[in-house]
Protein backbone atom coordinates (compact mmCIF):
# COMPACT_ATOMS: atom_id res chain seq x y z
CA UNK A 1 0.00 0.00 0.00
CA UNK A 2 1.21 3.48 -0.78
CA UNK A 3 1.39 6.23 1.82
CA UNK A 4 -1.74 7.71 0.26
CA UNK A 5 -3.62 4.42 0.69
CA UNK A 6 -2.53 4.18 4.32
CA UNK A 7 -3.69 7.72 4.95
CA UNK A 8 -7.02 6.98 3.27
CA UNK A 9 -7.35 3.88 5.44
CA UNK A 10 -6.63 5.92 8.58
CA UNK A 11 -9.03 8.64 7.57
CA UNK A 12 -11.67 5.99 7.00
CA UNK A 13 -11.43 5.31 10.73
CA UNK A 14 -12.52 8.85 11.48
CA UNK A 15 -10.42 11.79 12.62
CA UNK A 16 -8.21 9.57 14.74
CA UNK A 17 -9.72 10.63 18.01
CA UNK A 18 -11.66 7.44 18.55
CA UNK A 19 -9.88 5.14 16.13
CA UNK A 20 -9.41 1.54 17.25
CA UNK A 21 -6.07 1.08 18.89
CA UNK A 22 -5.18 -2.53 18.12
CA UNK A 23 -6.27 -4.67 15.19
CA UNK A 24 -5.99 -7.93 17.15
CA UNK A 25 -5.74 -8.82 20.84
CA UNK A 26 -2.25 -10.29 20.56
CA UNK A 27 -0.96 -6.91 19.40
CA UNK A 28 -2.31 -5.33 22.57
CA UNK A 29 -0.70 -8.04 24.71
CA UNK A 30 2.64 -7.69 22.95
CA UNK A 31 2.52 -3.92 23.34
CA UNK A 32 1.67 -4.15 27.03
CA UNK A 33 4.40 -6.69 27.74
CA UNK A 34 7.04 -4.34 26.45
CA UNK A 35 5.73 -1.55 28.69
CA UNK A 36 5.61 -3.88 31.68
CA UNK A 37 9.15 -5.13 31.11
CA UNK A 38 10.41 -1.60 30.75
CA UNK A 39 8.74 -0.69 34.04
CA UNK A 40 10.47 -3.67 35.60
CA UNK A 41 13.71 -2.12 34.45
CA UNK A 42 14.64 -4.96 32.10
CA UNK A 43 15.57 -2.50 29.37
CA UNK A 44 15.61 1.22 28.62
CA UNK A 45 13.65 2.91 25.85
CA UNK A 46 16.77 3.54 23.84
CA UNK A 47 17.51 -0.20 23.86
CA UNK A 48 13.95 -0.91 22.85
CA UNK A 49 14.01 1.64 20.03
CA UNK A 50 17.18 0.05 18.67
CA UNK A 51 15.76 -3.47 18.84
CA UNK A 52 12.53 -2.43 17.15
CA UNK A 53 14.33 -0.38 14.54
CA UNK A 54 16.55 -3.37 13.68
CA UNK A 55 13.47 -5.51 13.03
CA UNK A 56 11.71 -2.81 11.00
CA UNK A 57 14.80 -2.39 8.83
CA UNK A 58 15.21 -6.09 8.10
CA UNK A 59 14.98 -6.92 4.37
CA UNK A 60 11.49 -8.13 3.62
CA UNK A 61 9.81 -5.76 6.02
CA UNK A 62 6.59 -4.69 4.35
CA UNK A 63 6.29 -1.21 2.95
CA UNK A 64 2.85 -0.59 4.37
CA UNK A 65 3.87 -1.26 7.95
CA UNK A 66 1.24 -3.99 8.26
CA UNK A 67 3.84 -6.26 9.84
CA UNK A 68 4.62 -3.67 12.49
CA UNK A 69 3.47 -5.75 15.44
CA UNK A 70 5.21 -8.84 14.03
CA UNK A 71 8.37 -6.75 14.16
CA UNK A 72 7.39 -5.63 17.64
CA UNK A 73 7.20 -9.25 18.83
CA UNK A 74 10.46 -10.16 17.08
CA UNK A 75 12.17 -7.21 18.79
CA UNK A 76 10.79 -8.30 22.13
CA UNK A 77 12.09 -11.84 21.56
CA UNK A 78 15.55 -10.67 20.55
CA UNK A 79 15.80 -8.31 23.48
CA UNK A 80 14.80 -10.84 26.12
CA UNK A 81 17.12 -13.40 24.51
CA UNK A 82 19.94 -10.86 24.76
CA UNK A 83 19.06 -10.44 28.44
CA UNK A 84 19.21 -14.22 28.90
CA UNK A 85 15.59 -14.35 30.02
CA UNK A 86 14.72 -17.06 27.54
CA UNK A 87 15.64 -18.26 24.06
CA UNK A 88 13.79 -18.82 20.82
CA UNK A 89 13.78 -22.63 21.21
CA UNK A 90 11.84 -22.37 24.48
CA UNK A 91 9.46 -19.87 22.92
CA UNK A 92 8.99 -22.15 19.87
CA UNK A 93 8.13 -25.12 22.09
CA UNK A 94 5.71 -23.22 24.25
CA UNK A 95 4.07 -21.52 21.26
CA UNK A 96 3.52 -24.95 19.68
CA UNK A 97 1.99 -26.15 22.95
CA UNK A 98 -0.40 -23.18 23.01
CA UNK A 99 -1.26 -23.89 19.38
CA UNK A 100 -2.11 -27.52 20.17
CA UNK A 101 -4.03 -26.46 23.26
CA UNK A 102 -6.06 -24.04 21.13
CA UNK A 103 -6.94 -26.79 18.65
CA UNK A 104 -7.90 -29.17 21.45
CA UNK A 105 -10.13 -26.69 23.24
CA UNK A 106 -13.83 -26.71 22.28
CA UNK A 107 -15.02 -23.44 20.80
CA UNK A 108 -16.24 -20.96 23.34
CA UNK A 109 -14.16 -22.27 26.22
CA UNK A 110 -11.05 -20.58 27.52
CA UNK A 111 -7.86 -21.98 26.08
CA UNK A 112 -5.58 -23.36 28.75
CA UNK A 113 -2.11 -24.74 28.40
CA UNK A 114 -3.31 -27.84 30.31
CA UNK A 115 -5.46 -28.64 27.27
CA UNK A 116 -2.35 -29.40 25.20
CA UNK A 117 -2.70 -33.13 24.46
CA UNK A 118 1.09 -33.55 24.35
CA UNK A 119 1.65 -31.89 27.67
CA UNK A 120 3.65 -34.12 29.96
Amino acid sequence: MSLRDLIAYSQGLGDGIDAPVFAEPWQAEAFAMVLALHEQGLFGWDEWAQALSAELKRPGALDDGSDYYQCWVAALESLIAAKNVTNSTDIDHLAAAWQRAAHATPHGQPIRLENDPERS
Binding site: E24, P25, W26, E29, A30, M33, A36, L37, Q40, L42, Y69, Q70, V73, L76, E77, I80, V85, T86, D90, I91, L94, A95, A96, A97, W98, Q99, A102, L113
Partner: peptide, 17 residues
Protein backbone atom coordinates in the same frame (compact mmCIF):
# COMPACT_ATOMS: atom_id res chain seq x y z
CA UNK B 1 1.17 -14.92 16.25
CA UNK B 2 -1.36 -15.18 19.05
CA UNK B 3 0.17 -18.45 20.29
CA UNK B 4 3.64 -16.96 20.20
CA UNK B 5 2.60 -13.96 22.25
CA UNK B 6 0.83 -16.28 24.69
CA UNK B 7 4.05 -18.28 24.98
CA UNK B 8 6.05 -15.14 25.69
CA UNK B 9 3.57 -14.04 28.31
CA UNK B 10 3.68 -17.49 29.94
CA UNK B 11 7.47 -17.51 30.12
CA UNK B 12 7.71 -13.95 31.40
CA UNK B 13 5.01 -14.58 33.98
CA UNK B 14 6.73 -17.74 35.22
CA UNK B 15 9.93 -15.78 35.61
CA UNK B 16 8.10 -13.15 37.60
CA UNK B 17 8.87 -10.42 35.06
Amino acid sequence: MAARVRALETILTEKGL
